[in-house]
Design a binder for these strands. Structure first.
Length: 276
DNA sequence: AACCAGGCTCTCC
DNA sequence: GGAGAGCATGGT
């Protein structure tokens, strides 16, 4: 992987960085595609990103933030190879998704976003999040920042319903109050099992949503979110519950389980479908 | 018109 | 601890 950097611009050349696959595998909701460029908002930061034969180019006044966001200090070639080595049956999915990188996103934003994601579809999740940001987030020249915890606490259950959250509205008011900076820093120092337990105390957060928060917002690879797509892909006679699927892959892959899960999710949703 | 979407809570056993 | 009902909303 080679990185060339200017003031507000960064170009990454690597076969292990596919911008579209990274953004469109369901880990992030605040991005829009326009004329081949992606416009990404994370927390209170914004960038434009595009990919051509020469690599991925990121433009932002906060380029340091997005170096971390895209985890450009990590070697995904090694992770990719190790997953295939441990779990050869995932080779097709891993090859198809080799350019996927796990983004380092803001934990509070992940809690709120994935509460909304429950029993919902991605276009609608994006719409609800955008409307909440426009309602409560700080206005910037490029749009609206994701609301801070204090800003989220300004919204009522009726507000969240008006913005389309449906029955998740009460979860959002309650979670906004519960997920303080202190709560989140407690998660950082806990092991994954303890962090899971703490997250499950938040209304609207179950095991799957907790795994997503830990994987996308807390950098914990030893997780394995099982949603309806993963059930379709992985339920078998022996692995016949979500918990068994989750344990099976975490036991084998450890901190690489989360990335493997992204390969499978991407393959099931974006690749396999096209060939049928 | 049923069924589904990055499931969760609550109840009952 | 596990099974089942109910849940807002919009797309197919």
């Amino acid at each position: 992987m080679t990185i060339s950097e200017e003031k507000n611009k960064l170009t990454v050349r690597s076969e292990y960085f596919n911008l579209a696959d990274t953004l469109e595998c369901g880990q992030v909701f605040r991005y829009a595609k326009n004329d081949g460029s992606y416009y990404i908002i994370s927390k209170d930061k914004h960038c434009r990103a595009e990919q051509d034969g020469g690599g991925v180019t990121i433009t932002s006044s906060d380029i340091g933030y997005f170096k971390n966001y895209f985890a450009l200090d990590e070697d995904y070639a090694e992770k990719h190879a190790e997953i295939i080595s441990i779990a050869p049956e995932l080779k097709a999915a891993a090859e198809a998704g080799k350019g996927i990188r796990l983004l380092r996103q803001d934990p509070f934003e992940m809690v709120i976003s994935f509460i909304i994601s429950a029993n919902n579809n991605i276009p609608r999740i994006k719409g609800i999040i955008d409307r909440i940001a426009a309602e409560a987030g700080t206005k910037k020249e490029w749009g609206y920042a994701f609301p801070t915890q204090a800003q989220m606490c300004m919204l009522t259950e009726a507000d969240f319903r008006r913005l389309g959250a449906g029955y998740r509205a009460s979860y959002l008011t309650s979670a906004s109050r519960a997920v303080t900076d202190g709560f989140l820093s407690g998660l950082t120092v806990s092991d994954t099992g303890s962090a899971m337990k703490k997250l499950l105390t938040v209304k609207g957060v179950g095991k799957k949503v907790a795994d997503c928060i830990m994987l996308f917002g807390l950098g914990r690879g030893d997780t394995f979110p099982v949603d309806t797509w993963m059930e379709q892909a992985l339920l078998t006679e022996t692995l016949n519950t979500n918990a068994k699927i989750r344990c099976h892959y975490i036991d084998r892959l450890g901190s690489l389980a989360g990335l493997a899960q992204q390969y499978i999710y991407h393959y099931k949703r974006n690749i396999e479908k096209k060939t049928v």
